[in-house]
Amino acid sequence: MQADPSPPSKLQELMVFLTLSVFIWPFLAMAFVGTYGFAFWIYFLTAGPPGPG
């Protein structure tokens, strides 16, 4: 690690906080759920539709 150039300003930290909580984490959550559903879809296409339960 190199030395920390300068500590971030309050505004910088707030913007990064909002970007993460409003865009990045929700986007990753959707991508995760989408991939999960997609995986099951592909699985059912090959293994046949799920049984009762």
Partner: peptide, 14 residues
């Protein structure tokens, strides 16, 4: 990158 530098270190203000 500024974004990652701020995102990956402990907050100093909050």
């Amino acid at each position: 990158n500024v974004f990652f530098r701020v995102a990956l270190r402990p907050s100093t203000r909050y």
